[in-house]
Design a protein around this nucleic acid. Structure first.
Length: 322
DNA sequence: AAGCTCCTCAACCGCAGCGTT
DNA sequence: AAACGCTGCGGTTGAGGAGCT
């Protein structure tokens, strides 16, 4: 369906002139934009309402941040994109002053190339198939140990992570140690989430999300993750924290994000059945949430984990079933 | 200087979703 | 329920600038 506002009238197209900008700014400032379709006429512009809206949102709005993206912004984009995919508008919400169009352009012109140069698939954030990828490995012990997965320590190329509350249950039942490993299971099966952060580091409204599709330096002996400074607002406030507690070499990209991102990411993973079904190891983890959805998510995680750990399915065959 | 290629990014297009009639 | 109008979103395009030959 075309845009009737455009089809009905002869409208100007292409780049906006300073005079047009001025007219639009003047009109929006004085009258707002309750109905974009009427804005051009009211502002004396030969444009369609849609074009006016776009010009305002992407260029003229007073609180827009111009200029190149900072390293921090770039990192946020990559982190959130890994969870949400090409949802530019959602990603832009976490970058004050940036528009979806700007984020999209930046992604396509810069980040995408950077990731590919690093051998990462910009869509999945996994290693490209031409690289040696943990996510595409079967449970081949040679391959696993080659990449640092000692059989006695960590048999699986991924862990599945239910909310922290389930960890607490297990902890109280005495089945896990403080690094999240199931001490009673042969081979120290990695138990859901928690991943060693101290309990008091995550507040009631914070979420720890991690992606396990990359290796960390074996000699490093520690990994970095980020933690939210304590606010439950929608802003993403990163404070680098380091921990040496996570003994095996399987994690990267931990970020504390707000609940909206978590819910979008988690529900996306569940609804689209991405992640395990596609052999990706970057399934979302959450360490905490309070909604009913979490019960379902937790069940799904636990069921999938049980299936994997019992050996009834390979990673490639795991299905979300919820 | 001219011509060409590559890159960036503002703008457009088509579609989906939602509310109203 | 269907048609319509509006808004918002993501993919794509193309003008123009930068860099190279």
């Amino acid at each position: 369906m075309g845009h009737l506002c455009c089809a009905k009238q002869k409208v100007k197209r292409g780049l906006w002139s300073p005079e047009e900008d001025e007219k639009l700014i003047d009109h929006i400032t004085k009258h707002g934009h309750s109905c974009w379709s009427t804005v051009p006429k009211e502002a004396g512009l030969q444009r369609c309402g849609k074009s006016c809206r776009l010009r305002w949102i992407n260029y003229l709005k007073p609180d827009l941040k111009r200029g190149s993206f900072s390293a921090e912004e770039e990192r946020i984009i990559i982190d959130v994109h890994r969870i949400l995919g090409n949802r530019w508008a959602q990603i832009a919400k976490h970058l004050p002053g940036r528009t979806d169009n700007e984020v999209k352009n930046f992604w396509n012109s810069c980040i995408k190339k950077k990731l590919m140069a690093q051998g990462l698939d910009p869509k999945t954030h996994n290693l490209l198939s031409s690289s040696r990828s943990v996510t595409t490995m079967n449970n081949n012990s040679d391959e696993l140990s080659r990449f640092g997965y000692g059989q006695s320590v960590h048999p699986a190329p991924f862990t599945i992570s239910p909310p922290i509350k389930s960890f607490d249950k297990m902890k109280h039942a005495g089945s896990v140690d403080h690094c999240g490993f199931n001490s009673s299971a042969a081979g120290a099966i990695p138990v859901p989430n928690f991943q060693c952060q101290q309990d008091n580091m995550i507040s009631d409204h914070q979420l720890l999300m991690g992606f396990k599709d990359q290796m960390i330096d074996n000699s490093q002996g520690s990994f970095d993750f980020t933690a939210n400074g304590g606010s439950s607002s929608s802003s993403v406030d990163y404070t680098n924290v380091s921990s040496s507690c996570f003994g095996h070499q399987q994690a990267s990209g931990f970020s504390c994000l707000d609940e909206n991102i978590w819910h979008e990411g988690a529900m996306e993973a569940l609804n689209s059945k991405q992640g395990l079904q596609q052999g990706q190891a970057h399934q979302v983890e959450a360490s905490y949430a309070t909604t009913l959805d979490l019960e379902m998510i937790e069940s799904a995680f636990l069921a999938a984990e049980a299936e994997f750990c019992s050996g009834t399915t390979s990673m490639e065959n795991l299905q979300w079933d919820c």
